Amino acid sequence: MSSFVDFQNEIYLAGLGGAVPELPMTAEGLAKRAEELLDPKAFAYVAGSASAERTADANRAAFERHRILPRMLRGATGPGARDLSAEVLGTRLAAPVLTAPIGVLELLHDKGEVLVAKATKELGIGCVLSTAASSTIEEVGAAAGEWWYQLYWPNDHELARSFVRRAEQAGAKAIVVTVDTPAMGWRPRDLELAHLPFLQGKGIANYLSDPVFRAKLATRPEESEDAMRAAILTWIGLFGNHSLRPADLARLREWTNLPIAVKGIVHPDDARQVVDAGADAVVVSNHGGRQVDGAIAALDALTTVVATVGDRADVLFDSGIRSGSDVVIALALGAKAVLYGRPWAYGLGIAGQAGVRHALRLLLADFDATVGLSGCVSAAELNRSLIASVR
């Protein structure tokens, strides 16, 4: 049974001895602390969104248009009353939450992806490893509990196949194909600092460790600066696949028996096409506002996608989650689980694994409390009847 909310009891009891939390207690507070402490390039890379950042703002504003209708006298708040566990794509989770795939975590902490994997394993939730990672698939697989692999499908099918096979062998439970980033969006925060970490050889550990990629190189990248520059240039030619189409999911199905989710979907027709092509799940996401400025808020797209494919595939939600009530709203509107991004990345930059754990415990405790105070004893009870729309 759920005990995430016990986090608040730990804090209050510690307060009797004069202790107060060293880390902020909100997602906004974590962002502010990170901006104070992190290298400006690292903070900009995580915090930045596309162009005027209207899509990122819209993601948050969309939650303001929905209100929870709590139910009373249901016995949902007592000790051991709630069980928030969920099964998503065959993965059993202590709560329907996974860390979203964020790349280049070495900007925030050495072996950042491994630390995230350890923190999620401890809490019993899932993590999704980015292709653009600073730690290898195998390193994360050795440290993680329940984890999925996010595939940025490169412009080389053999390399893509190698990534997928490596992930499966390392223990990944699902493949998440991100389709909204065949190229990077216009990101002024990074442009003002002339900072693209991949050009410095950061965030390409899975390429540098891959036998298919290494076979394309004349010299091993670790041998010299010139060899590393050649490897980076090779990476540039491979990242992003502009020819990818829904039918390519059949190719992916030939490579693996793992469940397949497609991330970056906001249009119902796209959702229908990828499910028709064999996807087991759709992740409604606009990449946290990082790709198309002025795009629809992910939450505003959720109910239509659920209505379109929810009877045939799991629908997950990503983009804009900042609190437990946000998780409740997304699940009540039809999401099976949520992917949670930037706040734990700020925690990683501030305090390493302890910072990730803190950020995740904030979300999970808030979610746990909100579910109970809304009159529900499980995440499965959350439904549209608990939500009022405000325009």
Rank of each mutant, 00 (worst) to 15 (best):
M1Q: 13
I11D: 05
G18H: 05
A19K: 12
P21F: 12
P21T: 14
E22L: 14
T26K: 11
K32N: 14
R33L: 15
E35F: 08
Y45V: 03
R54P: 01
A58N: 07
R65S: 09
H66V: 11
I68V: 15
R71F: 04
R74E: 07
G78Q: 12
G80Q: 05
A81V: 07
L84M: 13
S85P: 01
V88H: 02
P96C: 09
V97S: 10
V97F: 10
T99S: 12
A100Y: 00
L105A: 15
E106D: 15
E106V: 05
L108H: 15
D110P: 04
G112K: 03
L115Q: 15
L115V: 09
T120M: 04
T131R: 01
A133Y: 02
S135K: 05
V140E: 00
G141L: 09
G141P: 09
W148F: 05
Y149K: 06
Y149I: 04
Q150T: 09
P154D: 12
P154E: 07
P154W: 05
R161V: 07
S162I: 14
R165W: 08
E168K: 15
T178G: 13
T181D: 04
W186E: 12
P188N: 08
E192M: 14
H195E: 05
H195D: 10
L196C: 03
Q200A: 14
K202E: 13
A205K: 06
L208H: 09
L208T: 15
S209E: 12
V212K: 00
F213L: 11
R214V: 08
R214T: 14
R214W: 11
A218S: 13
M228I: 02
M228H: 03
R229N: 12
L233D: 08
G237S: 10
G240P: 03
L244A: 04
R245D: 01
A247N: 02
A250M: 08
P259A: 12
I260R: 08
A271R: 01
V275D: 04
G278Q: 05
A281G: 11
V283G: 03
G288W: 02
G294V: 07
G294E: 06
A295Y: 05
A298W: 01
A298G: 08
A301G: 05
L302K: 00
V305D: 06
V306H: 02
V309F: 07
A313V: 09
D314C: 01
I321Q: 05
R322N: 04
S325V: 15
V327L: 07
I329E: 00
G334F: 11
A337C: 08
A337M: 11
L339V: 06
L339I: 04
Y340S: 01
A345C: 14
Y346D: 03
Q353T: 05
Q353G: 09
G355E: 02
L362V: 01
A380Y: 00
L382K: 11
R384Y: 11
I387F: 00
